[in-house]
Design a protein around this nucleic acid. Structure first.
Length: 153
DNA sequence: GCCAACGTTGGC
DNA sequence: GCCAACGTTGGC
């Protein structure tokens, strides 16, 4: 079983939004970073668990859990000239960007803020979120880090 | 709103 | 292939 962390801006699409979607499921479109794409396309499997992280907000941190319910397929929003994340270099014959479908699992009993996580940096040596300048929106999480973080809950 | 970090673009 | 310019992310 794989573990991941995905960032989202709660003002744009937060965990509450995901919970209210039909089937509590939404496609994770708009990823336009090659490293993040590769993690989604090559790494994510159905059933993988996701730490849902809120960024760019009052208290950035992990707020809940989601899971992968569909493996990577072309992000069609890249083909649409009207779409915010349109990419003229991506087309249906040769898609450049991919997305997965993500389903709401649950909120954490309490939010685990970035600030709090920083206090556990020693126990989370490989946790990319704590690295300076980290901007990836899709990040693999080790099983140890997954368990450690959920034990904080 | 500021700014550091970092990815991408494009001229050469 | 180098690197300056530029755009974006995201914490603060």
């Amino acid at each position: 079983m794989g573990y991941w962390l995905m960032k989202s801006e709660p003002d744009v699409f937060g965990l509450e939004h995901l919970k209210k979607m039909p089937n509590k499921t939404e496609h994770w479109d708009g990823v336009r970073n090659y490293q993040a794409r590769n993690f989604m396309r090559d790494g994510m499997k159905v059933g993988d668990q996701i730490l849902f992280y809120h960024s760019n907000c009052e208290v950035p941190g992990i707020v809940g859990i989601a899971q992968v319910v569909r493996e990577a397929y072309p992000d069609h929003t890249a083909f649409d000239p009207e779409a915010k994340y349109h990419d003229p270099k991506s087309d249906p014959e040769n898609p450049r960007w991919y997305m997965v479908d993500v389903q709401y699992v649950r909120h954490l009993k309490r939010n685990i803020s970035l600030h709090e996580l920083k206090g556990h940096a020693e126990q989370l040596p490989d946790f990319p979120l704590l690295r300076k300048g980290n901007r990836l929106s899709v990040i693999p999480v080790s099983e140890q880090a997954w368990k450690y973080i959920l034990d904080l809950e």
